[in-house]
């Protein structure tokens, strides 16, 4: 009885002992000694432009292009957009773009513009750029030497937040396992041999996010944020995404409206799998462009 596996409960979350509980619960994982080589800058960049979508939510691609360029230059610290992209990938890379396919899909305009930049700025052959998402995820990710994670900003009914860390769920080849008891373990997917250390950039589509968990889209909970959120640290970027979603939910209800289930996978990604930081005190937020309703207060 005493050696029975401790399962994570609401009480662990309330007590703030998720980290300890996770360490106990996930004993046996090899992850702690298999941390990803993340560039732990823990800088997260948010760039917004009020005019990136018109009143019918059609994307103004010229403005979106400018947003991407400015974001990349800020994230990389390079002087030109060409140098910025060249810091991210090499011409020899096989690049997997990883958009969100369901619930709040990544805008195809964003994916197209990134693909175009990789071809024109870096010289990656078009055939070496693939959409590495979906049921064939494990096959698609295998030949990739670089991944650019491009999820849509959204909450999720099984994991609380469903943006960055959850974006690679299909690479597991057994996504349903992570709907149940293993949902806290989503971070381990980032450590799979075909995935580990391949992520060069996290670029979140926060143009029209979804702040309720679904499980299917409900337009009442979508809003015009008109932003991109980017960084190297997937956990830090997801943490900022969570902050924005949480603030929006409170704004809608006029009182605290916490996500349920709580986003335990995020803390686990930090404390168990070492993918980055979920500690707001360790994250430098750079909010550029349109500042109204930034939701980071």
């Amino acid at each position: 009885m005493k050696n029975r596996r401790h399962c994570i409960t609401r009480r662990d979350f309330t007590r703030g002992t998720i980290g300890a509980a996770l360490g106990f619960s996930l004993l046996g994982t090899k992850s702690i000694s298999a941390r990803v080589d993340v560039k732990r800058s823990s800088q997260v960049f948010i760039l917004r432009d009020e005019k990136v979508m018109d009143s019918a939510r059609n994307i103004e691609t010229t403005i979106l292009q400018k947003m991407i360029n400015e974001t990349l230059i800020k994230v990389t610290g390079e002087k030109s957009i060409k140098e910025a992209w060249q810091q991210i990938v090499n011409p020899e890379d096989t690049v997997g773009l990883v958009p969100t396919p369901h619930l709040n899909p990544t805008h195809s305009e964003l994916t197209d513009l990134v693909k175009k930049a990789l071809i024109e700025m870096v010289g990656v052959p078009e055939e070496n750029i693939i959409i590495a998402q979906g049921r064939k995820g494990p096959e698609l990710v295998k030949p990739c030497t670089a991944l650019i994670s491009m999820p849509g900003l959204k909450a999720h009914w099984l994991t609380g937040i469903g943006t960055v860390i959850k974006n690679y769920i299909m690479y597991s080849g057994r996504p349903r396992d992570y709907h149940h008891e293993d949902s806290a373990r989503l971070g381990e997917i980032w450590l799979l041999p075909d995935v580990k250390n391949k992520t060069r950039l996290v670029l979140v589509d926060a143009l029209y996010p979804l702040c309720d968990k679904g499980p299917q889209p409900d337009p009442r909970y979508k809003w015009d944020y008109k932003g991109l959120i980017a960084g190297y640290d997937p956990v830090a970027v997801d943490t900022i995404c969570l902050k924005i979603i949480t603030a929006k939910r409170e704004a809608i209800k006029g009182e605290p409206w916490p996500l349920t289930p709580p986003p335990i996978c995020l803390e686990a990604a930090d404390k168990v799998y070492g993918l980055g930081t979920s500690d707001m005190a360790e994250i430098d937020i750079h909010a550029l462009g349109w500042q109204k309703d930034l939701l980071l207060g």
């Binding site: 399962c7 994570i8 409960t9 609401r10 979350f13 009914w157 099984l158 709907h179 149940h180 008891e181 949902s183 806290a184 968990k213 499980p215 349920t260 289930p261 709580p262 335990i264």
Partner: peptide, 15 residues
């Protein structure tokens, strides 16, 4: 229990 957790989080395990 997945639906319960989406309304009131109790545990990821179906206790």
């Amino acid at each position: 229990h997945l639906v319960l957790n989406s309304l009131y989080y109790l545990s990821h395990v179906n206790i």
